[in-house]
Amino acid sequence: MSVTPTPKRKAAIFGVPLAWIAAFGALIGVFSIVPMIFYIFGGGFLSAGMIVFSPLAGIIMGPWAGYIAGLIGGLIGMLISPASYPLGFIDANLSGAFIPLYWGLVKKNYWKFMIPWWILWILVAIVWPYHIPGPAGGYKEAPEPYYTLSWSWTYIGFALYLATLKFLNDWISEKSTTTKKIAGLLIYNFIANTAWMVPWKIIYFALLMYPPETVIADNIISWWAYTLPMVVATTIIAYAVVEAMRKSGMYRPPGGVV
């Protein structure tokens, strides 16, 4: 199959045409008003922009171009749907730009950045803010070991990332079988989801000063309330879009996994 060559004469960032970045940014922003996953405790939702277009941006364009598109989308979303971005510019990063960043970073090529970045956020989540500054900063001391164990999905995601690092990209490559592609995308999306949720959650919890017991409860329900629906939806959508792109012979940005 022939693939459309790199658009050399067109403006591009990280090998991705600016028009693609702008289009993804606009889609992420506009779809921030469309609910997709309702919070189990009520009060809000994860938007279709976050669940559909943000992971796609990372998978198709790679982490760096994806980050730019996500930030554009987050800024648009922050203005047109403030309820979806209660932390303003911080949320434009956490709920906008960080999703394509993480979904792009799972690709094997970025392991030197991904591994220390992920470990750093795990350490931040365990220590800050419920132990340091803890009561001195107005936060209730987190009960241990329950608090640290409640982040178990990210430890499992990290172990799975290390275990599948060598072959995951081959599983989701064009030459792979359908079964391996779907299984590979499920694993890929699980890894990305469990990595991204660490900064996304802990910054919310810290800035909104949630009690540690609420954090533990929210972490425990995350398995099926956030991770399961997001991973399933993203896998179906990513499989459909990636396969359609491959079959149509569209240009494939070098940073992505298409």
Partner: peptide, 30 residues
Amino acid sequence: WVFWIGLIILAYGLVTFSTAIASPEAAETA
């Protein structure tokens, strides 16, 4: 194209509906 776009719409509907009825609070928001 009908198949692939249909699959995406199906995934959206499935996830949104299942989380909308997951709890009384979620149903109230939805």
